[in-house]
Design a protein around this nucleic acid. Structure first.
Lengths: 158, 158
DNA sequence: GCTTAATATATCGTATACGATATAATCGTA
DNA sequence: TACGATTATATCGTATACGATATATTAAGC
């Protein structure tokens, strides 16, 4: 009955809301840099993975890195294909597997995007200390989080 | 030409991806707790604000707290209205303003949701130290971030 | 070799996000 | 007090997210 019973329900006490709003604010910051390239932020992330892999990846492999499944990736990859940045073809060894590879335009886009990270960092206007602290806190959080299938980021609890 | 020029484009170097994936993972954790209540995670956030305000709020006031605009809020609030948790009516003083208030069912839902925060925290499985560190890091980040209109969350640097 | 289980994507339905624009009501001011 | 500017929502179009299910292909067991 007392208001204090609902103390935990206050927005400012929610770690989740901080994450949720910070993620959206940062994503919005990317817009002016990615829009001229003709890609969205999630598409940019998918391209980061492909650029780094240097080889065709299956939808599942992309999904493992991005923590997304085919229900999200398939439509996005189709858009990237229509835009001319990737190609999709079935694996010869396993027809179930859809292999996603970069086109010439997809590789060329990498050069156009080369400065995006530093532009974004500049636009953020956050000091190195705070940014580094946040990265560390997020890694520790993801490492401890249950069902935080953050790949190899898991760590034993001390 | 050298691979090193693209070092910054590696996914693991992206602060933004950590934020993006951590936010999604936490949101997914809410699902089993909010689904029985018949609400989604963004709807839960909107209700948190209304429960805390204790009075009808305009779409704009809700949006300030949630960092969302009418293009997102209007459809969501209509769903909450159809679900019977809120009422929407125009302000008598200013017909432009849509006032959102809780129904009895909306207030009752607060009791059902009272344990959600601790259930979620339990489900997270993250130590207090790590959680507190992340909250601190996110607040410092949001405080410094340019156009980080984090409301009253800004804080002077020590 | 045939049938069933498992796997990899794809599809579908619903619910956000959000830029751009439209609409309606109020305000400011000549 | 008309009327253009401002303000508060709403609408529209596009692009994710994601649970649930469908489809197609391969693997496994008998």
């Amino acid at each position: 009955m007392a208001e204090t019973s609902y103390e935990a329900l206050k927005l400012d006490h929610q770690l989740c809301f901080r994450l949720y709003s910070a993620a959206r604010r940062v994503t919005r910051l990317y817009h002016p840099f990615l829009d001229p390239l003709g890609i969205t932020y999630p598409q940019y992330l998918a391209l980061l993975v492909l650029w780094e892999a240097q080889e065709p990846l299956s939808v599942g492999e992309l999904g493992q890195r991005l923590e997304l499944e085919s229900n999200t990736l398939t439509p996005m990859l189709k858009k990237l294909e229509v835009a001319g940045f990737v190609e999709r073809r079935r694996s010869a060894q396993d027809e179930r597997v859809q292999l996603v590879s970069l086109t010439d335009a997809g590789w060329a886009l990498r050069e156009s995007a080369a400065h995006v990270p530093e532009c974004l960092y500049e636009a953020l206007g956050v000091s190195d200390e705070v940014a580094i602290a946040l990265v560390g806190a997020l890694d520790a959080f993801s490492g401890e989080m249950r069902s935080g299938n953050a790949g190899d980021a898991r760590q034993e609890r001390a």
